[in-house]
Nucleic acid binder design. Structure first.
Lengths: 341, 341
DNA sequence: GTGAAAGCGCTAACAG
DNA sequence: CTGTTAGCGCTTTCAC
């Protein structure tokens, strides 16, 4: 009880009067051990407060049993869901998760990957910031890699789990057009958030398909930061007072739109309809509650982890896994009536 | 390049024509190595794509260089901030962070602690769910423990970093009384969120000090879940139509209050003022924007990590570290006018 | 400065 | 069924 350092397998073996291999068998669940012996070992272990060392085991097995997870920012609601999904899956599969945030910086991301490799993680899940990190080497040397929520152009061979962002934006656009809107603006992310350009392309394609002009002037891109988002939204709404609806490609942009509309004394949805991608928890707290496309962050994380740990075979076959989104209609979009604004 | 298994220190030593000890010295920064030799080693390592194994090093050093972090739920905004703070600090100190969520379940928490001990983490930071886990053993056997945002009655000797919740609630109460409110309700958490009862006590004390009656009937407790929070808020506001202000002890309760007020067609703040603890990102998106007490989640995490890794000496001395909160006044509280409601 | 050797705690043959 | 043995990759005396 007052041992300076914790008991080892050797101590337990001695105390139980067995060989260390037997103790190992008891704790690793490998091989067969007589019930009586097992009891004796367990008793000795309990007595000594023995904890098998994952370090020793890991060294022998040359894997740590952990997985590395890289997200841009753990405080982003979507990322947090992603993390939660990975944790949930890892738990059922008996692995632990090392988490780190790259904050969109490819250099930093590369460092994190390096560190994960040193830790000999069993695999890495990342919402990648860029191609600086040596993903291929990471996947090859000691672990496999799965991307989540973002596909990297040059690394198509890395298995990936995505939300069907295109489908989400499409349903948003169809919904607004269905309400009668014709001058619909799109607030997109400049540095890609999701497959680069996918959302914007889906927006344009859908409008075109429905015979609504997608004016270039109504499609703006902002850096994914609070101030930039606000600036973009304000610029748009002031420049084009005739827009009747805006689609925001991510929650920061949606928030900016709400704030700007309030600032400009535009009523939502009477003066302008607002809808966005990402059904953050506060969407229903807004007044009016915000119509949004829910992306399954948790499922993406869970699935990515499953892919990594459980289905190494199926990885990457047939392109990225794409999970469905869901349009959640609330009160922030209204039917267009003639003569508005 | 096509090695089946990654290069070891031995491979590098051979390739560089030196002993493994020298390679070790180069990579661990220990001891002195001639510049020429170092270059040779580095070159060989680069050639072989060598990554020192944290497993081997950890085994030798009997510590993994990582820390374990336990929160109730990574998707909770406050917890997410806490995690971000720990990550930030760990990064500067060169450690990695294993994260897991206990979801308020002491059993699960105990399992996580066990697992962390097996991993031989250098320390554990927890927003503890309960006393089931053997915190003392964890602190003794192989790592130290620091609590964050919650103090455990029976474990006062564990160093702890807290927000000044009492101060936060006090400022909220003072603010509302200052606006003229006299019938102020308190929505508290039944299962403790923060030091048990601290917020409620601060609320009652403050009112009393200011000569305002704190009616028991106006102080209600809800389980920290969405539905329970809503039920509690609805019950309160319907039962006592005469309350003019409500203080919510955490963001779930504040949100519930907002929703219920809207449901009941109460205008905020004209009919009822609402303020809450926890300045979540969407507080300013509400209409009207919510007055709230900001708790420094990130700082708490950072400080806890610092305490764990950098200042083992100062730990626990002089009671818990208590970080200040800040009252953020927005538009959800108004001055009481005679004859309201 | 540098190398040889002895483990750190554990698992996996291989004998018995 | 169980014990013995040989490492897994690294750090660290201790000589040279």
């Amino acid at each position: 009880m007052a041992d300076r350092r914790s008991a080892t397998i050797k101590d337990v073996a001695a105390a139980a009067g067995v060989g260390i291999a037997t103790v190992s068998r008891v704790f690793s669940g490998t091989g067969a051990v007589a019930d009586a012996t097992r009891e004796r070992v367990l008793a000795a272990a309990r007595e000594l407060d023995y904890r098998p060392s994952a370090l020793g085991r890991g060294l022998k097995l040359r894997r740590s049993g952990g997985i590395g997870l890289i997200v841009p920012d753990v405080t982003d609601p979507f990322c947090a869901e992603l993390v939660a999904g990975v944790l949930a899956c890892a738990r059922t599969l008996g692995g632990h998760v090392i988490v780190d945030a790259a904050h969109g910086d490819p250099e930093r991301e590369a460092e994190i990957v390096d560190r994960f490799v040193e830790q000999r993680v069993d695999g890495i899940i990342a919402r990648p910031a860029g191609e600086t990190a040596d993903w291929r080497a990471a996947a090859r040397v000691c672990s496999s890699v799965v991307f989540a929520d973002r596909i990297l152009p040059g690394l198509a061979e890395i298995p990936t789990v995505l939300a069907d962002d295109a489908g989400g934006v499409r349903s948003l656009a169809e919904y607004l057009v269905g309400l009668g809107h014709r001058r619909i603006a799109f607030l997109g992310a400049a540095a890609p958030g999701g497959e680069p350009g996918v959302r914007e392309r889906a927006f344009r394609d859908t409008l075109e398909r429905l015979g609504v002009p997608a004016e270039d002037d109504l499609v703006v891109a902002a850096r994914p930061a609070r101030d930039a988002a606000y600036a973009a939204a304000a610029g748009l709404l002031q420049r084009r007072a005739d827009v009747t609806a805006v689609v925001a490609a991510e929650h920061l942009l949606g928030e900016a739109a709400v704030l700007v509309a309030r600032e400009l004394d535009l009523r939502v949805p009477a003066d302008v309809s607002i809808a966005m991608v990402d059904d953050v928890p506060w969407a229903e707290l807004c007044d009016p509650p915000l119509t949004a496309v829910a992306r399954p962050g948790r499922d993406i994380g869970y699935r990515a982890c499953e892919l990594l740990l459980r289905e190494p075979a199926r990885r990457g076959r047939g392109g990225p896994v794409r999970l469905p989104t869901e349009l959640v209609v609330r009160g922030s979009c209204g039917a267009l009536r003639a003569g508005r604004r």
